[in-house]
Amino acid sequence: MTAVFYLVVALSPLVGMVLARQARADDDRDLLLGALIVQGVLAIPMAVAYVTAGVLVIIWTWRARKNTDAFPGALPTLGAGWAIAGWLVPFANLAVPARVVANVARDSLWRRFTPALVAVWWSAWLVFSVGERMVDLLDRRAYERLPEIPFTDGGYQAYVDYYRDSMLRNAVPAVACVIAAVTLIMLIQRISAAQEARIARALPAWPTAPVWPPAQVSPVAQVSTAVHVSAVAQPGPVVQVSPAAQPGPVSPPGPPEAGGTIGA
């Protein structure tokens, strides 16, 4: 979603160029102000989406890094704290997040070498991050050279050229933003699926006694049990016992003596 908003902002100079041409044709300076308003309005949802996406990526990176601590054979090189600090510390954010994600990818996907997708993602992210700041700086300097109030066709044409050049400058960061977004989504999906599979394989089995939930009994075992129970329940032959062999009356038990045991 952030990439979509950025593409809209990157293409917004096209609207400014159209309005600047219309302002030149109608000699209407208010249309130039309208072009600035359009860019400002489009930048607001872009900023919100950018911050939201950044927070979500940091949370996912930290959770994915913490999961690797429970994986046998995992060899993390950086602590879980760097999954957060790596994005926030100046200069460290140029390399540390890539190292954390690369380590997580190797331990989660069970690979000896870092997947190439990590390199593509981080390279595109650096091009976008640095390129976007450079474009913003160049746009500010170019806008300061524009005439404050255009009175001639040349003044209006300067605004047209400004918006055209700004859109061309935005092309490289826009392409890099799309590549970074797509590759990051692919990495998150693959790493998350691999970690869920490893966690599922490591779940403990149900205890043998008592068994809960009740174990499923196969139909063959049910039939065998039913036959055994019916065979036990059938009465056997009646045996005649002579009166002499019959037991006599049984006297009631006496009170238990001191020091005895229950059931003795």
Rank of each mutant, 00 (worst) to 15 (best):
V118Y: 01
V118G: 02
A119G: 15
V120A: 13
W121L: 00
S123D: 02
A124C: 04
W125V: 01
S129A: 15
V130L: 15
G131Q: 00
G131M: 01
R133C: 02
R133H: 09
R133G: 14
V135Q: 05
D139K: 13
R140F: 09
R141D: 11
R145A: 15
L146N: 08
P147E: 06
P147D: 04
I149Y: 15
F151L: 14
T152A: 11
T152M: 09
G155F: 02
G155A: 06
Y159T: 04
Y159H: 12
V160T: 14
V160K: 02
D161V: 03
D161P: 01
D165K: 09
D165N: 12
S166H: 00
M167V: 06
A171S: 09
P173S: 07
A174E: 00
V178Y: 00
A180K: 02
A180Y: 01
A181C: 08
T183G: 03
L184R: 12
M186D: 08
I188P: 02
Q189I: 13
Q189H: 14
I191N: 00
A194F: 03
Q195Y: 03
E196A: 14
A200E: 08
A200I: 03
A200W: 01
R201D: 07
A202H: 03
L203D: 01
P204V: 01
A205G: 09
A205L: 10
A205N: 09
W206Y: 09
P207H: 05
V211I: 09
P213V: 06
P213A: 06
P214A: 09
A215C: 05
A221G: 08
V223K: 08
S224A: 15
T225G: 09
T225Y: 08
A226Y: 07
A226I: 07
V227D: 11
V229C: 05
V229D: 13
S230Q: 13
S230W: 09
A231Q: 12
V232M: 13
V232Q: 12
A233R: 12
Q234R: 14
Q234F: 11
P235S: 07
P235F: 04
P235Q: 06
G236I: 06
Q240S: 11
V241C: 07
S242W: 11
P247Q: 10
G248M: 11
P249Y: 10
